[in-house]
Design a protein around this nucleic acid. Structure first.
Lengths: 259, 259
DNA sequence: CCGTATCCGTGGAGATACTG
DNA sequence: CAGTATCTCCACGGATACGG
């Protein structure tokens, strides 16, 4: 990136990570840890492969990314964040917090990867019942945000929702050519809220819908009836949703430290 | 900016503020409050005027910036941040904190504006003697970072010149073509550390030097003798410097709340 | 199959001149 | 003072071809 030529720490930071795609590459490495080149491509839908290669080299030169020759079994190179790279996590968290305000308004033609849930879940939610039993919510979404907000309904017509009004059938490419819907799990227990990719072993609740609807419900930006109207389907104990609550902003750094 | 097309809050945020210059424009508005167009141009050395106009319009459309017709006395338009824009301050603080690691290595051809001091000073320092008397440090720097790190005074080869250039008065008078050196004040008192642009009324200490040297001393990244070797000049009570201490990182948000 | 390099069309970035 | 207009050129995005 062309340097801003300003002796200011914000400008200096942007000289390194202000380029297009750069912070999203770092997002992937923060969320996923060591990544193969192809993992990054998959987690960054829309990026051109040459750009990814160029950015990785630039970040390596800047000391943000480390390239590691993988051990024999995998025999491929893995990309890791250096300590300096990991220090960017607070930047991503603040950006994500700020960007959440735009989530209720998807453009209708956006990609989604279930591991992106980790940011809003662990950064913006907390367990309002920290001493309660360990609980799992399985989340099923499609790979893309459907224009009309319909979720990936391949699920059976059962579920807690009164059928009818909800998912008006025509999800654009239901017969996906790719590997089908994405599954992630939100785990509550011990006062923590985490998320991970993959199916739950014994989910207390399964929610299925388009990414905006699912996220809207999780973040309490959408009421359940409203979400159902937009295609949400649920199976299991809805109390798990109430346990998740939006976390109030923790002020830190900008003002006076408390003595 | 071309949207990333990803349903992720970080990507959404970058859709709005990820463009080149955008976050620096917001930096100016955070630091200076309401700005005239020309104030912004001056605080953003290197930006093209058309880009500034375009960005301001985009930010206005995004609801980050508000354009206000000024009252009769000034009769000009002022640019303000909206509440959504002010919410970006934590992002800037984290970026600035991360970028601080690059400050010891100026490229040697960079612009400097004294109001940029506010970020490192209020975000990264604290008053180790909060009950002490109110104290002012006057900071004098040039507009640019000299390649060799010499101060704005034309750099007499000696170090700690006991010469008569006192706090009150004689502008260092380098042969600068522009409006002379910049003066800012760092104020300690009541447990707070702040900075503002302009001369001090009764400074306890005056430090003069190039921006990297001055910042190096303030942040304790440079020892005093080392700083003097690089052109720092001081007049007054050096104890004021010891009162300023780097603030340890306040963890917030990324991990479990401390219950 | 994974990672990189090359080619090309488009659009944004940057410098400058100009206007209400 | 507050922008707009115009021009050039590089960077980006996209496709595709190449090397391990």
């Amino acid at each position: 990136m062309r340097s801003y030529g300003q002796y200011c720490s914000v400008a200096k930071a942007l000289d390194v990570v202000g380029d297009r795609w750069t912070l999203l590459i770092i997002r992937e490495l923060v969320l996923q840890g060591g990544c193969r080149y192809t993992d990054l491509l998959h987690g960054l839908p829309g990026i051109a492969t040459n750009l990814l290669a160029v950015r990785l080299r630039e970040l390596e030169d800047a000391g943000v990314v480390r390239r590691e020759a993988a051990p024999p079994p995998v025999a491929t190179t893995l990309f890791h964040l250096t300590d300096a790279g990991l220090d960017l996590k607070p930047v991503l968290l603040e950006l994500g917090r700020w960007g959440t305000r735009f989530m209720p308004f998807p453009s209708g033609d956006e990609s989604f990867r279930s591991h992106w849930l980790e940011f809003p879940v662990s950064n913006l939610l907390f367990d309002s019942e920290p001493t309660g039993p360990a609980t799992e919510i399985e989340v099923r979404t499609g790979h893309d945000v459907a224009p009309d907000g319909a979720g990936p309904d391949g699920a059976g017509p059962d579920g807690a929702s009164p059928d009818g009004a909800g998912p008006d059938g025509a999800s654009p490419d239901d017969g996906d050519a790719d590997d089908g819907d994405q599954v992630a799990v939100i785990e509550m227990g011990g006062g923590e809220v985490r998320s991970r990719v993959g199916p739950a072993t014994l989910p207390d609740l399964v929610i299925t819908g388009s990414p905006p609807v699912v996220l809207g419900v999780l973040m309490h930006m959408l009421t359940l009836p409203e979400a159902r109207r937009r295609g949400l389907r649920t199976t299991g104990n809805l109390g798990a949703l109430d346990r998740l609550q939006p976390r109030p902003r923790v002020e830190a750094g900008s003002t006076t430290p408390s003595s």
